[in-house]
């Protein structure tokens, strides 16, 4: 396997609250390989979006990065001065945000917003920037007349396409998709994901795809990382995970949505609710909801075990 383009090592993020620190991302270690689609799944509040924004260091206070290392193309993003980091942002790592409704500046045209991105990262003439903006919009299937449109004049799907076009403006090597289709209907969602996949094959960038929709993720990703209560609990290729998930939480997730291929198993939801991050349970964080809990789970935090090549999980029972 080639050198990973992004190596996250023992990465933690805290939120400063009145009652003390709340750890939203807890000691996560994860690699993103070049030109792969890595899915990151987890319930709301499991730390997946926080992780993505913290990588680019755009998390607003009260969130603080409290430890770890983020190596991106050989550079430690956490140690990089702000000015150098601005170079990395968008040129190397671009991002598509969750809410298509709110991700564009309402008072400037979409064309201007793409062009300013080009201007911010190098001397381009106004004509060249506009030509590139048109090219990008065409790439995501937006009529060229919409270059002078404002965000409110476009549908949610169109806006998200504009965001994708903007994200690819500078040929990034990593594209972070933070629940890019949550605000869209299912058909638009599928179209957009297919478009991203086609562009990804053509342009060869890596994708970090964050969602709470595991079914969607298994279809779309090469590898999948499962988060539970701020921690990474399982990491495996998508098909391996679909066939043989090892962590009880992942197994529970897989049982909780219908198979696309119409398997006959009954749907089951995981009992209970995710724990509060203010007072996480001791030991394995999933143990209060786990059907296979043993004594060890209540006291010992399960170590990260490699179970097969490129398949790993954090569970005492996984062998």
């Amino acid at each position: 396997m080639a050198e990973p383009i992004l190596s996250i090592r023992d990465f933690s993020v805290d939120y400063v609250t009145e009652r003390g620190l709340v750890r939203a991302v807890d000691g996560v270690t994860l690699d993103v390989e070049p030109a792969e689609i890595l899915g990151i799944a987890g319930e709301s509040g499991s730390g997946k979006s926080t992780l993505a924004q913290a990588l680019m260091r755009i998390l607003p206070p009260p969130a603080v990065i409290s430890g770890g290392q983020v190596l991106f193309e050989g550079r430690d993003l956490l140690a990089l001065p702000e000015d150098d980091l601005r170079e990395v942002r968008w040129k190397r790592i671009a991002m598509v945000f969750q809410s298509a409704m709110d991700a564009l500046n309402p008072v400037t045209t979409v064309g201007e917003q793409i062009e300013e991105t080009l201007h911010a990262h190098g001397a381009v003439s106004a004509d060249a920037a506009r030509a590139r903006a048109l090219e990008l919009l065409e790439m995501v299937g937006i009529p060229s007349a919409s270059i002078d449109a404002y965000a409110h004049q476009l549908s949610g799907g169109m806006r998200q396409r504009v965001c994708i076009a903007m994200a690819l403006a500078l040929h990034p090597s990593l594209l972070i998709l933070d629940e890019p289709t949550t605000a869209l209907d299912v058909i638009v969602e599928r179209e957009i994901l297919e478009q991203i996949r086609a562009l990804q094959r053509r342009l060869g960038f890596a994708v970090m795809f964050i969602t709470h929709d595991l079914a969607r993720m298994l279809q779309f990703s090469d590898r999948v990382a499962i988060f539970y209560a701020a921690r990474l609990v399982e990491l495996a290729p998508a098909d391996a995970l679909r066939r043989a998930a090892r962590h009880p939480y992942t197994q529970g997730l897989l049982r909780s949505f219908p198979s696309v291929h119409g398997g006959g198993t009954e749907l089951q939801s995981i009992p209970g609710a995710p724990p509060s991050l203010e007072t996480p349970p001791a030991g394995c964080r999933f143990h209060p909801r786990c059907g296979r809990v043993v004594d060890r789970c209540r006291t010992q935090n399960p170590a990260w075990r490699t179970l097969a090549p490129s398949h790993a999980a954090a569970c005492h029972l996984a062998e």
Binding site: I58, R89, F97, A103, P106, E116
Partner: peptide
Amino acid sequence: SDYVNLARAKGLS
């Protein structure tokens, strides 16, 4: 708002 966050992520000054 998201658009300000996006502007930061875009590496604007």
